[in-house]
């Protein structure tokens, strides 16, 4: 690790993909503001705009025309990913922009994706936050299953909850597929679908049920993997009248019925001024450092780093 912060640990997954089922949930808002808070606490932090279809992290952090971006690495204009890293005016904060991508870059070939993911794994930062694209597109699931870590972002609305469950089940199914390898997965999926046409897409839990009867050893292995995930859930844009327990309940449902561990790490309040901050291209947590939303974000940062702001800054 490069930074002098003694709290940063090699044992914790320090790469955090941030994804959610829907556009407008607040992934980019959370990525940028969490990044700023981490940097201010002394962690060397890199933000990566991995929303290849609709990059806009650079705009949120106030860098309208980034000179270099992720596509320069993909197109081999620069040999290493590190060379696409931009320094930000905030000490300890860095950005790999997604701007200037060719429009069709959202459909990356598999090898290209793997190349990016491997390169990200080799970067040396305390925290790497990846702002992911929308929905269950191939990309989001890739990111969530490669490091078995990630932050799901959701709003307390039926549409958003519906999408997050769909994403969670996709990650679940992908993980089973990864462990089983293609051929076995295919034959398993066929068997499960013969019993229940919904099995693969809507109810991947049937896949695991079936696997457990056919091959208990593999089934137990997958169960262990699902339990060992480091996934987190954040509820964003929570208004006063919303039930603050929704996030914890969602995690409970997933753990009880899918056997998959997701930790609820907090609500982030809805704040009208987020819009203003984005329009003025200012950082919300700096402009409104005592707002409830900023305090909420600090609670989330603590859940990720394991230390309070005071401990981090003091060291």
């Amino acid at each position: 690790m490069n930074s002098t912060n003694p709290y940063s640990s090699d044992f914790m997954p320090h790469i955090w993909p941030i994804g959610g089922g829907k556009g407008g949930t607040g992934k980019s808002f959370l990525t940028s503001n969490m990044g700023i808070l981490l940097a201010r606490q002394g962690f060397k932090t890199l933000l990566i705009d991995a929303d290849l279809g609709a990059p806009n992290l650079h705009t949120i952090v106030g860098l309208p025309n980034p000179a270099i971006s992720l596509s320069d690495f993909l197109n081999k204009r620069v040999p290493t990913l590190q060379e696409t890293v931009l320094e930000m005016p905030i000490h300890n904060l860095f950005l790999i922009s997604g701007a200037k991508n060719k429009l069709d870059i959202a459909n990356l070939a598999h090898e290209q994706k793997m190349k990016v993911l491997r390169a990200v794994s080799r970067l040396d930062y305390d925290y790497i936050l990846l702002d992911l694209g929308t929905g269950t597109s191939f990309n989001t699931i890739d990111f969530f299953t490669i490091w078995d870590s990630g932050i799901f972002v959701c709003n307390p609305e039926p549409t958003s909850i519906e999408n997050i469950y769909r994403l969670i089940r996709s990650v679940y199914a992908r993980k089973i597929r990864q462990v089983l390898k293609i051929d076995r997965f295919r034959s398993l999926a066929e068997k499960a679908e013969a019993q229940n046409p919904d099995a693969t897409i809507h109810h991947p839990e049937y896949l695991l049920d079936m696997l457990k009867t056919i091959d208990p050893e593999q089934g137990a292995k997958i169960e262990r993997i699902l339990k060992s995930f480091q996934f987190k859930l954040v509820l964003n844009q929570v208004r006063r009248q919303d039930n603050p327990k929704i996030g914890a309940l969602v995690c409970k449902i997933v753990e009880k019925h899918l056997g998959m561990r997701i930790q609820f790490i907090g609500n982030v309040s809805f704040d009208e001024r987020v819009h203003e901050a984005v329009c003025r291209k200012e950082s919300f947590v700096d402009q409104y450092s005592y707002s409830q939303a900023t305090l909420d974000l600090k609670v989330i940062i603590k859940a990720i780093t394991g230390v309070t702001e005071e401990q981090a800054v003091a060291s």
Binding site: P156, E157, P158, I161, E162, Y165, R166, N243, K245, I246, L249, V250, K252, I253, H257
Partner: peptide, 13 residues
């Protein structure tokens, strides 16, 4: 509350 028809937390699950 968790499993009821109009429970937001388990919506669509």
């Amino acid at each position: 509350q968790l499993y009821h028809d109009d429970s937001l937390a388990s919506y669509s699950f």
